[in-house]
Design a protein around this nucleic acid. Sequence first.
DNA 1: GTCTATAGGGGGATAGAC
DNA 2: GTCTATCCCCCTATAGAC
Lengths: 219, 219
Amino acid sequence: MAAASSPASSEPAASRRTELLAIAAGLFAEKGFRNTTVRDIAEAAGILSGSLYHHFDSKESMVDEILRTFQDELFGQYDAILLGDADPRAKLEQAVVVSFAAIDQHPHEVAIFQNESAYLGGFERFAYLAERNAQSRAVWITLLDDGVRAGAWRTDLDVELTYRFIRDTVWVAVGWYRPGGKLTHDVIARQYLTILLDGIASPTGPPATTRPTRTKKER
Amino acid sequence: MAAASSPASSEPAASRRTELLAIAAGLFAEKGFRNTTVRDIAEAAGILSGSLYHHFDSKESMVDEILRTFQDELFGQYDAILLGDADPRAKLEQAVVVSFAAIDQHPHEVAIFQNESAYLGGFERFAYLAERNAQSRAVWITLLDDGVRAGAWRTDLDVELTYRFIRDTVWVAVGWYRPGGKLTHDVIARQYLTILLDGIASPTGPPATTRPTRTKKER
DNA sequence: GTCTATAGGGGGATAGAC
DNA sequence: GTCTATCCCCCTATAGAC
């Protein structure tokens, strides 16, 4: 009754703080940050707005903590992929799959990052959003450049434009994807990759460096 | 001096009303609708907020007029394409090109439609936004279905998912496209189409109904 | 067509009681 | 940890002078 130690339950207590952040994230994602009032958040939590300030300094602090927690996890996954030893095409596939999984597991956080970065980025406190954006770009560009060197894509590929294409297409799915729906995030990721790669992968496969050279006569 | 007849200039007078709407559109696109105050708009126009109400009923009326004008034009273009006699693939290309041209010529309007539809759609006054959204879906689905019947795409294509893919990728470009920049909207449209079509066009071309049947012996 | 002045409502945040 | 009560600011919109 005193401390926040959970009963025999398996849940790690999900502190009141975490609980409130989850409620706030849902509202920020649904209505936007500015559009969500502290009174909205408090009402959804069953308390009054003044009580929120026992847990958080400000509304900004809430969205700050939401975004930082999410991004630390996501970029940890990207880093793991970059450090892996898969070939460029497989790494790109992994990055797409991980991104769709993030939409599945943290749809609110993704939506907030997508929709509020432009506004929040204007404050010094959220300068890290621009850094994360640059970091994200670096991940995709690296994967694409590696693929270019390995001959995994069509040779006339515009890397910068393709990066935007992928970034936009992947993240914007948060607008219509519904966790628990008919389509799982994994199926969607695979279908997106099918469309994407049949445009990017060179139709004849990688150049003849990894397989025995073969002439037409062999047919 | 009485009527709004322009001088010897070629500009059609661009009435003060139109001028104010353009200023408002820029701010709505940049900062969001809720995020833009009538004081912001007035200041940008060099007047005081109260004076705006000589021209418009409300802030809502402004965004309403902005969106209606833009959408009437855009959907007129889509309709013309649907009614044309080009083949399915060419029609899809036309629709993509027209969309990118819309981003070029009306970036603010596109951004507002993209970013504020969810919020504005909650008001009865803006119920037409949902209708336009359904209309837009109908356009793309029609184009894709026609292509399926004509054998223009890969046979394992998921039309619904491809529709979302195209819609998202095309419109989201408003977030980074800059009119007057290095890349023209036409070049971008063509490059997008290259990525897109090499993924959805059947690799061997349409089935052998439009060309003479040909056996391997002919080589 | 614009300004002055202000009404009326809602927003984020605080202080102290319980 | 929550509630009561409230401050102060900014918002949209209006009324009437110029």
